[in-house]
């Protein structure tokens, strides 16, 4: 067994060894396979794009009447749109809305889903019944049509609003899954032992049960991010949500319905730029997912 050897603690009053830190361990797991590193790099690049992207360009992107629907070139690496604006600039500045809304949606999904699932599964009884009826109700709401309807009365200019609506309709499945796992975990010996030792309920829920669902929840977080991206880009593409800001969905919509990218090759770079961005991000998520299981599951992590 090649467990990490504790640093030498000569004096017994030094607190027990905490092993290696979570970050260091995660990095060790990620770098074990190059694909995981690639996944992480892609995710980080997109995250940076979302945070700093709009700062790299003026508020109103420059237009160029002489380079409308220009093909990719040195000056316009991804070509231009109907006004001669660089597609690269559009993809970069448009990332913030898309990614922020998706992150919000995923956070809502995971926090609500996990929280309600844990509570329901741990407390059982009446709480469980009530929470699960609410969950069933949420599960029956068709999220996408609801968004279409809501968009007629609600201004989705703020990504938080978009994220909130996507998240609030999406946590039902996760809550059900977390609940059933909690129900089986609470019967396990170590939970009974924790109760017998007089450990408080919050400790049992958050420190004994929750870590055992770590891989599942982290995976859900990433998968909900990509899911939310598809959903919002879809909404903009369909044009059911008014455009306020530049984003990938708006680009797709304009490329197809205004630029005629389906018929002429001219607007093709305009259509493909956001699509490639989405594909790349999904690829990054998929590559990275593989590392999560090991990060959260000590049995798989046995030092290689």
């Amino acid at each position: 067994m090649t467990a990490r050897t504790p640093k030498n603690n000569a004096a017994p009053q030094i607190p027990p060894i905490h092993g290696e830190s979570f970050l260091r361990m995660s990095w060790r797991v990620i770098k074990a396979k190059p694909t995981r590193v690639i996944g992480l790099v892609i995710i980080v690049v997109f995250a940076l794009m979302g945070i700093f992207g709009p700062l790299l360009y003026p508020h109103n992107l420059p237009i160029n009447p002489n380079a409308i629907y220009a093909p990719p070139s040195l000056r316009y690496p991804l070509g231009t749109d109907f006004e001669g604006t660089s597609n690269l600039a559009l993809v970069i500045t448009g990332a913030r809305y898309v990614l922020f809304a998706a992150l919000m949606a995923a956070l809502f999904t995971v926090v609500f889903g996990t929280g309600i699932g844990l509570l329901s599964g741990y407390l059982i009884g009446t709480t469980d019944t009530v929470l699960m009826r609410i969950t069933d109700f949420i599960l029956t709401i068709p999220g996408f049509p609801l968004l279409v309807v809501l968009s007629t009365v609600w201004n989705f200019g703020q990504p938080v609003a978009m994220g909130f609506v996507l998240g609030i309709t999406g946590w039902g499945g996760l809550a059900r899954a977390v609940r059933s796992q909690t129900l089986s975990l609470r019967e396990r010996g170590f939970i009974e032992a924790a109760r017998g030792l007089g450990l408080p309920g919050w400790h049992i829920v958050f420190f004994e049960i929750l870590p055992n669902m770590g891989p599942y929840i982290a995976m859900n977080l990433l998968v909900s991010i990509t899911g939310a991206i598809y959903a919002e880009v879809g909404l903009f593409y369909l044009g059911v949500v008014p455009f306020h800001v530049n984003n990938w969905g708006v680009m797709l919509n304009l490329a197809v319905f205004t630029g005629g990218a389906m018929e002429s090759a001219k607007a093709l770079p305009y259509l493909l730029s956001p699509l490639v961005a989405i594909l790349l991000l999904t690829l990054g998520v998929v590559l990275f997912l593989d590392a999560l299981d090991e990060i959260f599951n000590p049995r798989l992590r046995e030092a290689a």
């Binding site: 027990p16 060894i17 905490h18 092993g19 396990r188 010996g189 170590f190 009974e192 032992a193 924790a194 017998g196 030792l197 007089g198 450990l199 400790h203 420190f207 004994e208 870590p211 055992n212 770590g214 959260f296 599951n297 000590p298 049995r299």
Partner: peptide, 29 residues
Amino acid sequence: KLRKVQLIQQDPYAALNPSRTIAKTLMAP
């Protein structure tokens, strides 16, 4: 009172949380 009566279960693997180190397992109580 009940804390003074401790159960030692049959399956020691199920009785320990697989996602926590022995240090954490002992430090909680």
